[in-house]
Design a protein around this nucleic acid. Structure first.
Lengths: 350, 350
DNA sequence: ACACTTTTTTGGAGCGCTCCAAGGTTATTC
DNA sequence: GAATAACCTTGGAGCGCTCCAAAAAAGTGT
């Protein structure tokens, strides 16, 4: 146990008989320093156990952290992001871009209350904010005068955002199923609060939205439009609001709506839990019921049967988000296209 | 675009007619400040667009980042960690502990060359180092005088480490298969460099280890011991060194070693790729061949059939690692127990 | 050996903050 | 209304560093 305080540039300089500035140069601009001096300094550093300039001082002086922060939306924690097939693919993309830029990726958590102070205090040069329009968060981020990008929300022309064309995706999903002949749908929408699935029986008006994000409304809109195109009304379709990954989602669908032949979801994860429940019950997919996922995660290709899903380039989205933060240019609003990937989980109705 | 420089505590103080220290108190110890003064300061802050003390100054003054760093081992990048079922579960555990401690989780990348400088410069109060015994990295971390934990490597009594009892796990895996009657094994060991699977035909001596980590040797040892207990020699067992996730692993096994009835792996991910290949070929598991995974990831329970695997509490390990870093107490070496979870991927030989 | 150029080294300034001892103010008590 | 206690505010010190203008040293040419 060594209780002397950790050495600083000045200490090393004293031992080596040079000034603080020279020691700094040895570590940051070695070519500026005569080689014998450099060696003397290095020897002194070694002797003192000095391992290079303390990042704290450097950060204050340079004004940069060389890190970008990723903050999950709403009530989600980083752990939820990692658990989710979509979330981890997104983070993967971000991490790739950080890697390329030589930056660190900080995963910052924030409960509802601490969120804004986290934004204020995070040691980052910019932020990626998960799909959230929380106005407080945005003003907080703006105050900090750091570049940031919002995912899956359009916050106006002054704010960087990247989102997918979820409405078209939803439309394509319905179109595909309708073309196969389906008339009996169930929609799994995303519950943004914690708790068991909420079943919204057919009925008029805005249902299924306890506290939705923009992407939820868009997809629901797309579903509605797609249904309208085949002379069905979303008002006649049951909507189940469920947390992705919630294992009981499938059970609710099969128990409550046995007549449904097609299940529309808003995430692959939801679709996967439905598939899991189908296996448990010996229900054949797609013979008995068709299932469509959303996002096109890597997992969607590996299920049995592989999932038909509305895919987009999640990794690319994460990567682009990180690049936008790093570049810190004019605000852009990017809408990424989606693609219906038809695989084995959809077929004609029974 | 506002080109005046960002305001500081002093600026706010000047506008509010109080000292820098009082402004600091308003943000950090509001209870110490008379309420009318506090309001005046808050008004001034609002007017100037000051959003609280700059973290840069705070960090230098306080000496803490309130963050811990996670660095993947060897040549792996953060992206690889997130891709791997094991890795992401580990990070999940770390993130849970960080969340509890109100700390940020920094995912720090480092190529072979930049690794040590990354350690030197990362804005963290401590590190979790992936399963690696790289001595340079350890000295680097020690130099920085920050607490750190190494996973899956014992680096001596002065260094925090957490590892599982992989040898016993491997032993149990072999024991289980032998008890079922298996005599024809193939081992999938982990290739730590990139590239296609390397097949090591039966033969004496240390095979299958291009550049192994401690955990690789331990598990191989456990396999050897288990085989010896049923009068088999690991020297007679083919060993295939393969990167987890490498999709061709299964093909190599089935093509080259059709006589094998039991496949031992060192990770669930490897086992899962074998299962995938079996599906592709119409090979029934476990009727035709038994497969054992390693680690007991969440994924292992969801395969078809569910995977028999040597499980341990990965999330708990990540969480504990983060706690050890945060607590910064006496160095400890922790060995976590493993458990053989028998599921559907193992059965009697054909 | 001197003037001049080039290469190295120096140390002050300042990044923005929090701590803390000391001084100032207000409230309470007798 | 003075003495005492409780509460607030102040501003110097210092965290460790990098930048930069200027000084010093080394090199070059005549």
């Amino acid at each position: 146990m060594n209780h002397t305080k950790t050495p600083t540039l000045t200490d090393v300089g004293r031992v080596a008989g040079v000034s603080r500035g020279t020691v700094s140069n040895v570590f940051n601009h070695p070519d500026l320093v005569r080689s014998d001096v450099r060696e003397r300094v290095e020897a002194a550093a070694r002797q003192l156990g000095y391992d290079g300039p303390d990042p704290r001082g450097r950060v204050l002086r340079n004004g940069k952290f060389n890190a970008i922060g990723f903050m999950p939306p709403g009530a989600y924690a980083i752990a939820d992001v990692i658990r989710s097939p979509y979330g981890r693919e997104l983070v993967l993309g971000v991490s790739l871009a950080c890697d390329e830029a030589g930056a660190t990726l900080s995963l910052v958590n924030g409960t509802e209350e601490t969120r804004t102070s986290t934004i204020r205090e995070a040691l980052v040069d910019g932020f990626i904010l998960g799909h959230s329009v929380d106005i407080d968060l945005i003003t907080s981020a703006q105050r900090r005068r750091l570049p940031f990008v919002i995912l899956e929300s359009d916050a106006g022309p002054d704010i960087n955002s990247i989102r997918i064309d979820g409405r078209s995706g939803a439309l394509m999903a319905v179109g595909h199923l309708a073309a196969l002949g389906h008339r009996h749908f169930v929609i799994l929408s995303i519950r943004r609060t914690s708790g068991p699935p909420i079943v919204h029986m057919p009925g008029k008006g805005k249902r299924a939205i306890t506290a939705g994000f923009q992407l939820d409304y868009e997809r629901l809109d797309g579903f509605a439009q797609g249904l309208a195109e085949v002379n069905l009304s979303i008002d006649d379709v049951p909507i189940i609001e469920t947390t992705p990954g919630e294992p009981s989602a499938g059970a609710v669908v099969f128990d409550r709506f046995p007549e449904a032949t097609a299940i529309l979801t808003m995430s692959d994860w939801q679709a996967i839990t439905v598939l899991d429940e189908a296996v448990r019950r010996g229900i054949n997919i797609p013979e008995h019921v068709s299932v469509v996922g959303f996002d096109g995660t890597a997992e969607s290709a590996r299920t049995t049967p592989p999932l038909t899903t509305v895919a987009h380039d999640i990794i690319g989205k994460g990567r682009l988000a990180a690049q936008m933060v790093n570049e810190n240019g004019q605000p852009r609003q990017i809408i990424m296209s989606v693609e219906l990937v038809v695989r084995g989980s959809t077929g004609p109705p029974r």
